[in-house]
């Protein structure tokens, strides 16, 4: 016969904290209602990891914000947001909460980065993603006084942004600029600025029209990516004809075969378009320490935009 106390609260504190990391958010809330000791344990312990979550902010008035957080199967909703009240509530629900991917959407309202940082004070994220939909949102984030790097930040810009607005960002994990698929001299990024952006952001993706590089500049870009000591990827879309002419200048063509070595390039794969499996024509190359994938490439009939992705092998 075991002679042991039935009291769960007599179990080691470290164990109880570990237990709370295995409990769903909704069950944490229910545990708060069981007794004082568990209400305190919920506040002092870390919440269970959540792979994906999102926060949507809207502005009710200049001083009043509303927000919704989608945490797993739970929506946290308020329409009368006050910073102190949120801080108090948040500190009763968990000591810390970890997310894989947390998406912040300001839904058109002005949202400063320093506000987001205060709001997510005890949130730990592998990646905090901002979706920026217009110039006002971008401007507000740029004007915020947060210094240093945003190493776990990821920004998706969904409108056509002008180059001079792009240099002010601190280094980020991912900067993805989409915008309209149109060509405009105004949105073309100067080559020095392009190099600088590569040095800033670990993953840089630029939609059609932002990058127009000469053959020499393209070589410099590959050399640059290849020589970085940490992970670096750049992706951009250019005119198909320019890419094909660039490849042909090195002797790379539709007749090249996997395993061929042409100058400093090695062909890692070459595939024709295959409508049955919905695959576009593509070629995979390696140059020094850099993997290059080129998708939507038309050797004889031209696609409107061909996507190039260069990534070093770190």
């Amino acid at each position: 016969i075991l002679n042991f106390s039935m009291d769960i609260l007599s179990l080691p504190t470290v164990f109880l904290h570990e237990l709370m990391k295995h409990v769903d958010i909704i069950d944490r809330l229910r545990l708060r209602l069981t007794c004082r000791a568990f209400e305190q344990l919920v506040a002092e312990s870390n919440a269970r990891y959540i792979e994906k979550a999102s926060i949507r902010f809207t502005e009710v008035s200049q001083s009043l914000k509303a927000f919704e957080i989608n945490i797993g199967n739970v929506w946290v909703i308020t329409h009368e947001y006050a910073e102190e009240e949120w801080e108090r509530i948040r500190n009763r629900f968990f000591h810390k909460i970890s997310f894989g991917d947390l998406v912040v959407n300001s839904d058109g309202s002005e949202l400063a980065l320093d506000f987001i940082q205060r709001f997510t004070h005890n949130f730990e994220t592998k990646q905090l993603r901002f979706d920026i939909n217009n110039e006002q949102e971008l401007d507000k984030i740029q004007r915020s006084e947060t210094g240093g790097t945003l190493s776990n930040y990821c920004m998706h810009i969904w409108y056509t942004v002008l180059p001079d607005q792009l240099l002010v960002f601190p280094p980020m994990n991912v900067l993805n600029i989409n915008g309209k698929q149109t060509y405009s001299l105004q949105k073309q990024i100067p080559i020095d600025m392009f190099y600088k952006m590569i040095s800033f952001h670990k993953y840089l993706s630029l939609d059609y029209g932002y990058v127009v590089v000469t053959l020499e500049e393209r070589n410099n870009t590959i050399e640059l990516i290849s020589e970085y000591s940490d992970v670096r990827t750049v992706k951009f879309t250019m005119d198909n004809a320019i890419i094909v002419s660039y490849l042909r200048s090195f002797g790379i063509s539709e007749t090249s075969e996997e395993g061929d070595r042409i100058g400093k390039f090695e062909i890692n794969g070459i595939y024709p378009e295959d409508i049955e499996i919905m695959r576009d024509s593509r070629i995979y190359l390696r140059f020094k320490n850099c993997d290059i994938s080129i998708c939507c490439i038309g050797w004889t009939h031209f696609y409107s935009g061909t996507t190039v992705e260069m990534s070093n092998l770190k």
């Binding site: 209602l33 929506w75 946290v76 629900f93």
Partner: peptide
């Protein structure tokens, strides 16, 4: 009341 911040 605090828990009501979270709804299914």
């Amino acid at each position: 009341k605090e828990n009501a911040w979270c709804e299914n």
